[in-house]
Simulated assay, not measured.
Amino acid sequence: MLACKRICSSTTISAFRALRGSQVVLFGQVQRCLSTQTDGEVRIAKLLRQKFPLASSLKVVDISGGCGAMYEIHIESSEFKGKRTIQQHQLVNQALKDEIQEMHGLRIFTDVPKQ
């Protein structure tokens, strides 16, 4: 198995993508191509853009394989300036309070833009 992992090339991965559409099967694991967004990712990103209009960077990723059970959010906004990390995360949680009820987990990464 180790030898197989070492010789797996981008050509092999491309072939898997062609066969599976928007998913890649690699050593028994299914990974989604990040060039397309799920409906949940789009919905959450839209809500966060509305709540944090000054966000300079926003990325929402469904890390549950596309089923919407767990998301990872990276958001950088000047609206977090002067707030501790826990306060920043509370703001994100508050913005997504209705959606969080349907999730099994949420990873939040916040930052203030460097100027």
Score class of each variant (00 low, 15 high):
M1R: 08
L2H: 13
L2C: 09
L2F: 15
A3N: 13
A3S: 11
C4I: 05
C4Q: 12
K5I: 07
R6T: 01
R6H: 07
I7P: 00
C8N: 10
C8R: 05
S9V: 08
S9Q: 12
S9L: 13
T11D: 10
I13K: 05
A15S: 12
A15P: 01
R17T: 11
A18M: 14
A18E: 13
A18W: 09
L19S: 08
R20P: 08
S22P: 10
S22L: 06
Q23I: 09
V24K: 01
V24F: 14
V24S: 08
V25W: 09
L26G: 03
L26V: 07
F27D: 03
F27I: 01
F27E: 06
Q29W: 00
Q29S: 15
Q29A: 15
V30F: 12
Q31S: 14
Q31C: 15
R32W: 03
R32D: 06
R32K: 14
L34R: 14
S35T: 11
S35R: 09
T36Q: 09
Q37D: 13
Q37H: 15
T38Q: 05
D39L: 15
G40V: 00
G40Y: 03
G40E: 02
E41W: 07
E41R: 01
E41H: 05
V42P: 04
R43Y: 09
R43C: 14
I44E: 05
A45T: 01
K46A: 15
K46F: 05
L47F: 01
L48K: 00
L48Q: 00
L48I: 00
R49H: 09
Q50D: 09
K51M: 10
K51G: 10
K51F: 09
P53Y: 09
P53R: 06
L54N: 04
A55K: 06
S57K: 15
L58W: 07
K59F: 13
D62V: 11
D62K: 07
S64I: 07
G65V: 00
G65Y: 01
G65H: 01
G66I: 02
G68L: 04
G68M: 03
A69V: 02
A69E: 07
A69C: 07
M70D: 03
M70I: 05
M70L: 03
E72M: 00
I73V: 10
I73H: 02
H74C: 13
H74F: 12
H74V: 12
E76S: 08
S77P: 00
S77N: 02
S78M: 11
F80D: 07
K81M: 06
G82W: 03
G82H: 00
K83C: 14
K83G: 08
K83M: 11
T85V: 14
I86Q: 03
Q87M: 13
Q87N: 11
Q88M: 08
H89I: 02
H89F: 05
L91K: 01
V92C: 12
Q94G: 05
Q94L: 11
A95C: 12
K97S: 11
D98M: 14
E99M: 00
I100W: 04
I100Y: 00
Q101E: 15
Q101D: 14
E102K: 12
E102V: 04
M103K: 00
M103H: 02
M103S: 01
L106P: 10
R107G: 05
R107M: 12
I108V: 12
I108G: 09
I108Q: 04
F109Y: 06
F109T: 10
D111M: 07
V112W: 11
P113H: 12
Q115M: 04
